[in-house]
Design a protein around this nucleic acid. Structure first.
Lengths: 153, 153
DNA sequence: TTGAATCGGGACTAAAATGGTACTGATTAG
DNA sequence: CTAATCAGTACCATTTTAGTCCCGATTCAA
């Protein structure tokens, strides 16, 4: 099964939880409580998300976290990248010459194409989309038509 | 980084290698040599691919492997599924109630949508596509327009 | 000024997945 | 009958991942 790490999965839940109360500063404890995740885990996630510039932190009493930008301006891709680094499904890009046949180039090219499709799909889903009930969502469709235009060349 | 396991990556290389010599029976040793992968690793991969019905095996002297179907009828998705099971990026489907808010439903829905895009993209790339040089490939484009039609509803 | 609440950063541990290896048995061709 | 080859299983080492803990820094408020 292709997968995203469990922490990344959690991160989307945490981000959605924060997005559900915009303009409120939520403490780690509140978020952990609401999401039913362990507090140290949530803390670690928020630290990472903060480094990525996705949430703002406030120290001291009544401190906590808030979205750094409106939910509509934060994409699923950014959350994934914050936790896992650049989006990609293989390590072809880094490791060299494990198969020097011309066929291998085709393999690499195909994977890169898959990566690109996935990346665009992730980029097309915003945090605001994730807040909405799962029906009648249309942003992915929009993204795919853009994508079609782009890859037709 | 989102990823597919290294073995899955290897499997695509092995499959492409076999596809490059259609109607020939290649031994594990030949394939290992051509792909620069360890022989036991290739052996393990081929067994798995055989179970999935993607390659045919022949025992005994001059035995080996051959594609079970034409390369154009084998998709990247099938290779991935053979190695990793059903395609999906999260385990939301199995684990229950880790977050009982309505927001969580949005998260799950979004991930399922991503899964679907990815699945379709993988299904749109055939082994024959991977044999071709990486320029002027058009199948993904075709697939995306189909996909657009499908998700527009 | 003091203390409590809270984030920040890093180190650490335990568990799981992964990749790779070895060995033994079954099958087939010559 | 023998050598070549696939089939199956069990095993081990390494890496990655998840999760926890600790302590310092910061802020608010009494």
């Amino acid at each position: 099964m292709l997968r995203v790490s469990r922490l990344t999965d959690y991160a989307t839940v945490v981000m959605t939880c924060i997005a559900a109360s915009p303009s409120e500063v939520l403490s780690t404890a509140q978020i952990a409580d609401a999401t039913h995740l362990e507090l140290p885990t949530v803390s670690k996630l928020l630290k990472t998300l903060g480094h990525a510039g996705l949430v703002e932190s406030f120290r001291g009493v009544n401190g906590g976290y808030r979205l750094a930008r409106p939910a509509s301006a934060i994409s699923l891709a950014e959350i994934v990248e914050a936790l896992e680094g650049p989006i990609g499904m293989t390590e072809c890009g880094v490791s060299e010459g494990q198969c020097d046949r011309e066929s291998q180039c085709g393999v690499r090219g195909s994977w890169q194409r898959i990566n690109s499709v996935l990346d665009d799909a992730l980029r097309a889903v915003s945090l605001a989309d994730m807040l909405r009930p799962p029906v009648h969502r249309t942003r992915v469709t929009v993204a795919l038509s853009e994508l079609k235009g782009r890859t037709t060349a």
